[in-house]
Amino acid sequence: IRLYEREDYRGQMIEFTEDCSCLQDRFRFNEIHSLNVLEGSWVLYELSNYRGRQYLLMPGDYRRYQDWGATNARVGSLRRV
């Protein structure tokens, strides 16, 4: 999964292949505005340590956080399923 700091895949990008319990420890931002799921399925959590609202993401492109059903861009952790 590739996470981007801004909409439309702009700004700083980070790629994950494994679970991350605290996004801010690995990426200086806690807001993700766009992403690409390259393979497999992922769950994004609004808070760190896999807490808060959850969003199940299938392979595909998500140009804005609204595309995955979120009401804001906050992402605290993520897990591959």
Rank of each mutant, 00 (worst) to 15 (best):
E46M: 05
E7S: 13
R6A: 12
D61M: 09
W42N: 01
Q12D: 08
E18R: 12
R26Y: 14
S77N: 00
V75Y: 09
E5F: 10
A73V: 13
D8L: 11
W68I: 14
Q24K: 13
T17E: 05
Y4V: 00
L57Q: 03
A70G: 07
R51H: 04
L35P: 00
H33I: 13
E39R: 10
F29C: 11
Q54W: 01
Q12N: 14
R74T: 11
N72M: 14
R28C: 07
G69A: 11
E7R: 07
L35N: 03
C20G: 12
D67S: 09
S21I: 10
L47V: 04
D19Q: 12
S21G: 07
N49E: 12
G52V: 00
Q24L: 09
F16R: 13
Y62P: 00
N30F: 02
L57G: 04
S41Y: 06
D61E: 12
M58Y: 15
E39M: 07
N72D: 09
Y45P: 01
G52L: 01
R28L: 07
S48D: 15
R74Y: 05
E7C: 02
M58H: 10
R63S: 07
Y4F: 14
F27A: 06
W68D: 13
R53P: 11
H33D: 10
N49F: 04
Y65P: 12
A73Y: 10
R2V: 04
V37F: 15
I1N: 14
C22Q: 08
S21F: 10
E39F: 02
Y62V: 12
H33T: 06
G52R: 01
R53K: 11
H33E: 13
A70W: 11
F16G: 11
S41P: 03
S48I: 04
L44W: 01
W68R: 14
I1G: 02
N36A: 12
T17N: 09
A70M: 14
D25Q: 07
Q54G: 03
S48E: 15
N30W: 07
E5I: 13
E18S: 12
R51L: 11
I32S: 09
D8C: 12
S77H: 01
L78T: 03
D61N: 09
Y45S: 03
F16P: 14
T71L: 12
T17S: 08
I32G: 13
L3W: 01
Y55F: 07
P59L: 06
Y55W: 09
L35V: 12
D61Y: 14
R6L: 10
R51E: 15
L35Y: 02
Q12T: 07
L78R: 00
G60H: 02
R53C: 04
T17I: 13
Y65N: 14
W68C: 11
M13Q: 04
G76C: 02
R63W: 11
E5T: 04
L35W: 01
R64W: 14
G60V: 11
L38G: 10
G60E: 15
R74I: 14
E5D: 09
G60A: 07
R63K: 12
